[in-house]
Simulated scan of single mutants.
Amino acid sequence: MISGPIEATITPTNHDLGDFQVRRALPSRERRMVGPFIFVDEFGPAHLPAGGGMDVRPHPHINLATVTWLFDGAIDHRDSIGTFSTIRPGTVNLMTAGSGIVHSERSPENERKGGPKMFGMQTWLALPDGCEEIDPAFEAVDDLPVIEDGGARAIVIMGELWGQRASTTTYADTIYAEIVLAPGGQLPIDSPADERAVMVVDGEATLDGMDLPLYTLVVIKPGDAPALRSQKGARVMLLGGESFSNPRHVWWNFVSSERDRIQQAKEDWREGRFAKVPGDEKEWIPLPEVPKTVTYP
């Protein structure tokens, strides 16, 4: 039985991509969402072989927003609304799929010679009722609030935390932050958000004295304000926000409140009806027969 401030612990599914590991905590059988977060991937740390790189070919999304946050390395993002952006640590990339978008993610050419580094998070936010079919959009935000106190340094990536609000667009109430604890550092997890979770991505940390396993998504009980501490130092992600009253379905890269909408997106991608990605039109990921990302019963 789980006691103290912890409601649930979710051990991620590991996907070995050869040169680096991807750990997927959401969606899972134990938990479908934490606030608007419906997909949580942690990848790396890894140093890819010289001359190689990450190449995620163009693929579609609907009814969600992707959030990419790096601790190390760089990724070239291109999408079907004409965006080109190189993602680097300290800048959050928010891509709103809405009614539909296609994008690719590749290691920059100038990073490949010495072997690209890969370490970061990619999460998806389900869009709330009334916003699922909004126009696609993209933003990169680097003027993010930084809070330093008690041996802790926190970057507010989305939403409002510890009295500071990020300028990043939110469609539902959302909190997202990177917390770096120095040895002996601590920080209260005192946000009143409906749902909250933390993931240690480097080092060691505790929540009200309870150990937090590395790469495990730990859901915090509503209303609790536990202390996050580290004796040796740690990097921890905090995420969550408002709970959704209506469920969301997931199939491959598609999220929607309506299964019929996902079926339409599958047919549109299979028949080539999504827009192309300028500068990356020659390749694409085919519609899978059995996707790795699915709604669990």
Rank of each mutant, 00 (worst) to 15 (best):
M1D: 15
M1S: 15
S3V: 09
S3R: 07
G4P: 06
G4F: 01
I6A: 09
E7D: 14
A8E: 14
T9V: 14
I10V: 15
T13C: 04
G18N: 07
A25N: 09
R29T: 13
E30T: 08
R31A: 12
R32L: 09
V34D: 11
P36E: 10
V40P: 03
F43M: 15
F43G: 15
M54R: 04
R57P: 02
H61P: 12
A65P: 05
A65E: 11
A65I: 06
T68N: 11
T68S: 14
F71I: 13
G73L: 04
A74F: 00
D79Q: 06
S80W: 00
S80H: 03
T83K: 01
F84K: 12
F84H: 14
T86P: 04
T86E: 15
T86G: 04
R88I: 13
R88C: 06
T91L: 05
V92Q: 11
M95G: 13
M95Y: 00
T96E: 10
T96Y: 01
A97H: 03
G98S: 10
S99G: 08
I101F: 02
H103G: 12
S104L: 04
E109H: 02
E109R: 03
N110H: 11
N110E: 13
K113S: 14
G114D: 12
G115K: 05
P116S: 10
M118T: 13
M121R: 03
M121F: 03
L125V: 12
L127R: 04
G130T: 11
C131T: 07
E132V: 07
E132Q: 15
E133D: 14
D135N: 12
P136T: 12
F138N: 11
E139A: 11
A140S: 15
V141G: 08
V141Y: 01
D142R: 06
D143Q: 11
L144C: 10
P145L: 03
P145V: 05
I147N: 03
D149R: 05
A152S: 12
A152Y: 01
V156F: 02
I157N: 07
M158Y: 01
G159K: 05
E160F: 00
L161I: 13
W162R: 15
W162I: 11
G163H: 04
Q164D: 12
R165T: 15
L181G: 10
L181S: 11
P183I: 08
P188R: 06
I189L: 13
A193T: 07
D194S: 07
E195M: 08
A197W: 00
V198N: 05
M199E: 03
V200R: 05
V200T: 14
V200N: 09
D202C: 02
G203V: 08
T206F: 01
L207E: 13
L207Y: 02
D208K: 02
G209A: 08
D211W: 00
L212K: 03
L212I: 09
Y215C: 12
P222K: 02
G223E: 08
P226M: 04
Q231P: 02
A234T: 07
A234E: 13
A234V: 09
L238I: 12
G240Q: 04
G240C: 05
G240W: 01
S245L: 06
N246Q: 12
H249W: 04
F254R: 07
K266G: 06
K266P: 03
R270H: 02
E271D: 14
G272F: 00
K276Q: 14
G279E: 11
G279Y: 01
P286K: 04
P286A: 10
Y296N: 14
P297Y: 00
